[in-house]
């Protein structure tokens, strides 16, 4: 989609297409509020289940607990042989390195595609788009064999190193689109002044691209934080588990015994994503509207 979309999505809403009676307006709002409540109800119920007495979890459909008790958070945190502190730390390290890798490697490639002229550029650009279409299942097994041979299984390397090789082509595409919108006169003027491509990339492109870099960073973080499949395959030692793997182990080990602890840890695992939602909502929504991201 075009730049027009990007500005229009956050611009004030257009005037209503036709006049509406006040009653119609009230009905629409009533419907939307009811729908909003239905959407949020499971989430709110989970948060309330994480602090309510255990016997209420399976009997109460209300959102307000009869008494508030934070002990499930403590029970859940230490509910497995390895604490959730460790899982959270592991998740943060992987997600943090992924953000750095994606921002650096994808912006380098995007700069080359958007601005530099070199033989085969269009060919490689087409290849890059092609990699976005291929389901990762095709490369999964040979990659696993490769990382196994390198001795990387049970370390974070298989999850992090590919990001430094710009394996998330989607972000390259996102950045190329943005870089193309930066006026070429800026780099041409810099070139006249004797700036090489590195300086132009570092001093002009990156500082002007903070919105797209932030969007890529936030989505990298959220997707990596939520990722289950990668850690499931590569991390088998509980000390290396991410928070998602920890949750899964928790379900399997105590599904019938400690629902309070399970919901406490589930709620906790959503906090970082919720934080980004709260503070960077505009970037997220623009990112989706302009590129059609899946989530």
């Amino acid at each position: 989609m075009t730049d027009a979309t990007m500005s229009s999505i956050t611009a004030p809403p257009p005037p209503a297409a036709g006049r509406r009676s006040p009653i119609g307006s009230v009905l629409i709002h009533a419907g939307l509020i009811a729908a909003s409540f239905a959407m949020l109800y499971p989430l709110l119920w989970m948060v309330s289940a994480s602090v309510r007495p255990e016997d209420e979890i399976f009997s109460s459909t209300t959102l307000w607990p009869s008494s508030v008790d934070f002990s499930p958070y403590v029970r859940g945190w230490f509910g497995l042989d390895v604490s959730f502190g460790r899982f959270t730390w592991n998740s943060l390290v992987i997600a943090g390195l992924t953000v750095i890798g994606n921002v650096i490697a994808c912006s380098l490639a995007a700069y080359a595609f958007a601005r530099l002229r070199f033989a085969g550029r269009n060919f490689w650009f087409a290849m890059m788009l092609g990699t976005m279409m291929i389901p990762y299942h095709v490369t999964l097994i040979p990659q696993y064999v490769l990382f196994l041979d390198l001795g990387w299984v049970n370390t974070i390397l298989p999850l992090v190193v590919p990001k430094f090789l710009a394996s998330d082509a989607f972000f390259i595409f996102l950045m190329v689109q943005f870089f193309r919108g930066i006026p070429r006169e800026l780099d041409e003027a810099a070139m006249m002044d004797g700036c090489g491509p590195w300086r132009i990339y570092w001093k002009i492109m990156l500082p002007l691209s903070l919105p797209v870099l932030a969007t890529a960073a936030i989505f990298s973080f959220i997707w990596t934080w939520d990722d289950f499949f990668g850690p499931l395959i590569y991390l088998n030692d509980m000390n290396t588990y991410t928070i998602q793997l920890g949750l899964r182990t928790f379900v399997d080990s105590s599904s019938t015994s400690d629902w309070g602890g399970l919901f406490a840890m589930s709620t906790l695992s959503l906090v970082p994503v919720f934080f980004f939602f709260l503070f960077f909502q505009r970037l997220l929504i623009e990112g989706i509207a302009t590129t059609g991201m899946k989530r």
């Binding site: 809403p13 257009p14 005037p15 209503a16 297409a17 509406r20 307006s25 629409i28 709002h29 939307l32 729908a35 909003s36 959407m39 949020l40 499971p42 989430l43 989970m46 959220i222 934080w225 939520d226 289950f228 998602q244 949750l247 899964r248 379900v251 399970l262 919901f263 840890m265 589930s266 709620t267 695992s269 959503l270 994503v273 919720f274 939602f277 909502q281 997220l284 929504i285 989530r295």
Partner: peptide
């Protein structure tokens, strides 16, 4: 339709998309 509170509704309806892929929601 130019309703008031568009951004709030939009945010609420979008939230499940953002959280939905996680293990926590599957557990829920």
């Amino acid at each position: 339709r130019g309703i008031k509170g568009l951004t709030v509704y939009r945010a609420i309806f979008y939230l499940p998309s953002l959280l939905g892929g996680s293990v926590a929601i599957a557990v829920l």
